[in-house]
Simulated assay, not measured.
Amino acid sequence: MSWKGFSLDSATSERRRPGASRVTAVKILIAGGFGAGKTTLVGAISEIPPLTTEAIMTAAGVGVDDTGGVPGKSTTTVAMDFGRITIAEDLILYLFGTPGQNRFWFMWDELARGALGAVVIVDTRRIEDSFAALDFFEHLGLPYLAAVNCFEGAPRYDAEEVRQALAIAGHVPLALFDARSRDSVRQTLIAVAEHALRTLTAGRPRP
C-alpha cells in the first residue's frame, strides 16, 4: 500500500525517517457511545503505550451517567484516549478516542481539528447511543466509517439491518469488527483511511 502523492493539508503532516521515504502522519478520531469500545480499540492496536484518561465513576455521576446496558463498567474517559499505529512504511495513524459521556462532548470540536476521518463504534445493545457521533461527523463533513463492535453478549444483526437502523447513506462504509482484536482493528482503520482519501480525491467538501 502506498500513500504517496496525496496532499492532505491540515489533516496530515509529513516527515522523513533516516534512510526512509517521506512518511505521512494522519489523525483519525475514534468515537461512539459510552462503553462502546473506544478505549479498548486504541489499546488493542497502539504500538506505543496508549495514553488514557479513564476515571473511576463515582456516586456523583448517578443520574448523570447512563450505565444501562453496560452494568459492569466502572470507569469513563474524561478527555481522550491516544495511540499510534504504523499502517504502512509511509503511513502512520494517530488515534484520538473521544469521550462518550454527554457532559464531555465539549471536547469533540477540539479533537476533530485536523482529522482526516473517524470511526464510529456501534454497540448493538445501545444502538441509539451512536446517533450523536454520526450526526456530529455528518454536520462537520468529516468522512467516517460505522464499525459494529461484535463481542460475546451483543445482539447480532445483518449489516444491512444495522445500516437501516443507523440511517446512514450508502456511500458510508459499515464494518463488523472486534475492538479487542488487533487484526480486526487494523483492517477497520485501513478501511476508514481509504474511505477518507477517496472522499478527498473525489473533491467532496471538508470542514
Rank of each mutant, 00 (worst) to 15 (best):
P205V: 09
V119G: 03
V172Q: 03
G153Q: 07
Y157F: 15
T67M: 14
G19Y: 09
T40M: 06
R22T: 13
S2E: 07
A147W: 05
A31Y: 02
V122A: 01
T188S: 12
L200M: 04
G5R: 08
G37T: 09
G83Y: 08
V122I: 15
K27V: 06
G43P: 06
A44W: 13
A112Y: 03
D158I: 00
N149G: 00
K38R: 12
E128P: 00
A196F: 05
F177T: 09
T24F: 07
G43T: 12
Q101T: 07
R126C: 05
A193H: 01
G32H: 05
D183R: 12
G97R: 07
I168T: 03
Y157P: 00
S184A: 12
D158A: 09
G19D: 08
Y157H: 10
R17A: 14
T201M: 11
S7K: 12
M107Q: 13
I48Y: 06
S7Q: 08
A118I: 06
R156N: 00
I190F: 09
E138I: 08
G141Q: 14
G203Q: 11
R198I: 01
G117H: 02
V26D: 01
I87M: 13
M1L: 03
S130L: 04
A146W: 02
Y157E: 00
E161Y: 09
H171C: 04
R163C: 07
Q187F: 00
F177A: 01
V119P: 01
M1T: 10
W108Y: 07
L142S: 10
E138W: 02
V42R: 10
A196C: 08
H139K: 14
E47A: 14
L41S: 11
V23P: 01
L174R: 03
A169I: 00
G61S: 11
I168N: 01
S184I: 07
T76R: 13
A154D: 07
V26T: 13
G100C: 10
A59N: 13
N149P: 02
L93D: 02
G63F: 03
R126A: 04
A159I: 11
D158V: 03
E54Y: 01
A11K: 05
F137S: 08
I127N: 00
G63H: 06
T39A: 02
A146E: 01
E110V: 10
V122R: 00
Y94K: 05
A55C: 02
T58P: 07
S74K: 15
P205C: 03
T53N: 05
G203R: 13
A31F: 02
E128T: 12
A165R: 15
A115V: 11
P143R: 03
R125H: 05
A25C: 13
G100K: 10
R186G: 04
A159M: 02
V192D: 04
T58H: 09
W3G: 00
T58F: 08
L176H: 10
A36E: 04
T199N: 06
D109M: 06
R156W: 02
R126M: 10
G170H: 00
H139G: 04
L140Y: 11
R84C: 06
I92V: 15
G61T: 04
M107Y: 09
I56T: 14
I45G: 09
L140R: 15
A115T: 12
L142F: 09
E89V: 00
E14N: 08
A20C: 04
T76W: 02
E194A: 12
E47M: 14
G69L: 14
S181V: 06
G32W: 04
R206Y: 15
A55T: 12
L176Q: 10
G35P: 11
L29Y: 05
